[in-house]
């Protein structure tokens, strides 16, 4: 019975009403302290934070999760390790993190509803869903020098000939950990943990200086 299954976990919407509550992204302090160089014609990398998205960790068997995701969001679970797929709008993505773990990113405010619907579909199956929206943020990097910038930062092979669009990996970034994803020919994404965001941001500004990195706000 899905109702009893629902009652065996604590399902709680932790998102506040952004109209009445001031929310701060993990970069709030960094933008103030380290600044944000404006993008220019010379910028070969442009950084943008996609703030306040819904981030859900999905755990469980691929087959049941795939079915539920298709029904709820019309996205199939990526079949291959270290890949991700998007829904038709491109606003929702699901990424393989581990044989039994995926990262689902949805527009801000959708996370709780998606979690509830998925839980309803999944019923008594063996699975887990955890909302981690407050704990990480998504940065996009756009420009022809992004691979070079990433080569200065991550140990994974980010040569575009090796790192196809639709690939995503968890790897070492400087002395922290990030998820690196490629969402377009010259468009890449980093999923950064909140507590490391300031360090990663400062690292990116520093490493990006030679590519005239700009930050879009």
């Amino acid at each position: 019975m899905s109702n009893s299954a629902m009652s065996r976990v604590n399902l709680y919407d932790t998102r506040a009403d952004h109209a009445s509550v001031a929310a701060e992204t993990p970069l709030a302090y960094s933008l103030q302290r380290s600044g944000a160089p404006a993008p220019s014609a010379a910028s070969r990398v442009v950084l943008r934070e996609q703030a306040f998205l819904g981030h859900l960790i999905l755990r469980g068997g691929a087959i049941v999760l795939d079915e539920a995701l298709r029904e709820v969001l019309d996205i199939g679970l990526p079949g291959r390790p270290n890949t991700l797929s998007w829904d038709a709008s491109g606003e929702r993505s699901i990424q393989w993190l581990s044989p039994d773990e995926w990262l689902l990113i949805v527009p801000g405010g959708e996370a709780f509803a998606v979690e509830r619907q998925l839980r309803e579909r999944l019923g008594d199956a063996s699975f887990a869903i955890v909302d981690v929206s407050g704990g990480q943020t998504l940065l996009t990097l756009e420009g022809d020098a992004v691979p070079e910038l990433l080569m200065k930062s991550v140990v994974y092979d980010v040569d575009p000939s090796h790192f196809a669009v639709g690939k995503g990996v968890t790897t070492v970034f400087a002395k922290a950990t990030v998820i690196v994803r490629r969402s377009g020919e010259s468009r890449w994404e980093l999923v950064v943990r909140r507590s490391f965001a300031d360090y990663c941001y400062r690292w990116l500004l520093d490493a990006g200086e030679e590519y005239a990195i700009g930050v879009e706000r």
Partner: peptide
């Protein structure tokens, strides 16, 4: 802000540990 509040104590005094999604912590 939606919160989970825990009545646990590391000081020996009456204590409430307020947990909220980190985006709203400053608020």
């Amino acid at each position: 802000v939606p919160a989970r509040v825990f009545r646990i104590s590391f000081t020996g005094e009456l204590t409430f540990e307020i947990n909220v999604q980190a985006h709203y912590a400053m608020h």
